[in-house]
Simulated scan of single mutants.
Amino acid sequence: MVLKIYSQIANESEKALLQFFGDNAVSFIDVDDFVSQIPEDDDSIEVRIHCPGGDVAEGWAIVDKLRATGKKIITVVDGVCASMATIVLLAGSVRKGYKNQRLLIHNTRFCDFYIENATAEDLEAKANDLRSEDNKILDFYVERTGADREVLSTLMKEERYISMQEAKDLGFITEIIEPISAISNTNKNKKNMSKKNLKDALNVLAQALGLSGAKDIELQTEDGQVLTVEREEGDPEVGDAASPDGEWLMPDGRTIIVSDGVITEIREAVPDGGEDVEALKAEIARLTAELESERSKGKSDEESAILAQVKAAGGKQWLDRVTTSNYVPPKPNLARKKEPVAEENVLEKELRERKERAKAHEAEKRKRK
């Protein structure tokens, strides 16, 4: 069951006075009534606190009543937790606090409307009572938090609010409650670890039952890191569980992409230079056809004029007659003159370079095989 302490702690007479002025309070009797209504099969009490403190004796009575139930007590700081409310907080074995709340501890105080009638002895006796109560509270703080006594004593004297992080560091709370939105943002970062923990637990269970647990294969990436894939044998495939997340270049040139602990894509290797050999061959064929086409296009102006003159003189018959002769050429000189190499045009040069690159890629591919 849940007990909410959302107002100050007061005894019954103080509570009645506060209610007269439109305020409210929580008393020991309220807590006693609450405890009496807890079902026997309910073994825990959750106490939610948003309280500025209050009556010391009433606060101690509330703590003792809660701890006497023998049930597990969980205390949660929903808002401010100050003064005697910190004693109630420490009644819990599990103590939580929302991230933006505060906690305040201080030395006890004495308030009496009839202080003017007190003697020096009365005041001295009251001062001793206050010191005794301070030590009692300090002892309880040290026992429940495990913090250094001198540190806690200094904080009580300073009488300043501390954050939930400071409260956790000192041991007043065991857990800081993050906003749900913040928790959901971190879930993705923890997802892979959770999967790994689950897998490890299943492996332990399988071994305990005499079964073979799930096996992994470890692949070394191009840069020397290890990619773990949940697969007993064979090559990794899309859909396999793997870790860690990222894009991993493998020694064979493939790239394995892992997202949220699962392989989502495997990219095949691309030849050096980033060009596909088949595409390069197709480009060479296209350029060759284009070159032949250029060569078969129309003649130059000079060639056209010569053809026109031959046609006017009689065409092929005239050409055969004037070119026929009984002349026998002399024996050729064995020392042949080296013919000049024709200069490549732009298209021929590009074609030659692409053929050389394709040949180099084919050689590289054969080496890899």
Rank of each mutant, 00 (worst) to 15 (best):
residue 45 I to K: 03
residue 277 V to S: 14
residue 160 R to W: 00
residue 86 T to R: 01
residue 169 D to W: 03
residue 212 S to H: 10
residue 369 K to N: 15
residue 200 D to W: 04
residue 141 Y to Q: 01
residue 50 H to A: 12
residue 352 R to P: 06
residue 349 K to H: 13
residue 315 G to E: 10
residue 30 D to C: 00
residue 282 A to R: 09
residue 279 A to V: 10
residue 322 V to S: 02
residue 83 S to I: 01
residue 78 D to A: 04
residue 342 A to T: 07
residue 161 Y to C: 04
residue 19 Q to K: 12
residue 346 V to N: 11
residue 280 L to E: 12
residue 249 L to S: 12
residue 23 D to R: 14
residue 179 P to F: 07
residue 333 N to S: 10
residue 189 N to A: 14
residue 352 R to Q: 11
residue 56 V to L: 12
residue 285 A to E: 13
residue 41 D to A: 08
residue 29 I to S: 02
residue 157 K to Y: 10
residue 109 R to F: 10
residue 194 S to P: 05
residue 155 L to A: 07
residue 149 R to L: 05
residue 265 E to L: 09
residue 367 K to G: 13
residue 363 A to I: 08
residue 55 D to G: 03
residue 266 I to A: 03
residue 265 E to D: 13
residue 73 I to Y: 02
residue 50 H to T: 08
residue 346 V to A: 15
residue 36 S to I: 04
residue 38 I to E: 04
residue 191 K to M: 14
residue 367 K to N: 15
residue 44 S to K: 13
residue 194 S to I: 15
residue 203 N to V: 11
residue 59 G to P: 01
residue 234 G to K: 03
residue 131 R to A: 12
residue 56 V to I: 10
residue 221 T to C: 08
residue 44 S to T: 11
residue 23 D to N: 11
residue 34 F to L: 03
residue 368 R to G: 13
residue 62 I to W: 04
residue 340 P to W: 00
residue 233 E to C: 00
residue 362 E to G: 05
residue 225 Q to C: 07
residue 116 E to S: 15
residue 20 F to N: 11
residue 274 G to I: 12
residue 339 E to V: 04
residue 114 Y to N: 14
residue 99 K to I: 12
residue 48 R to W: 11
residue 304 S to K: 15
residue 178 E to G: 01
residue 263 I to P: 02
residue 361 H to S: 15
residue 348 E to V: 14
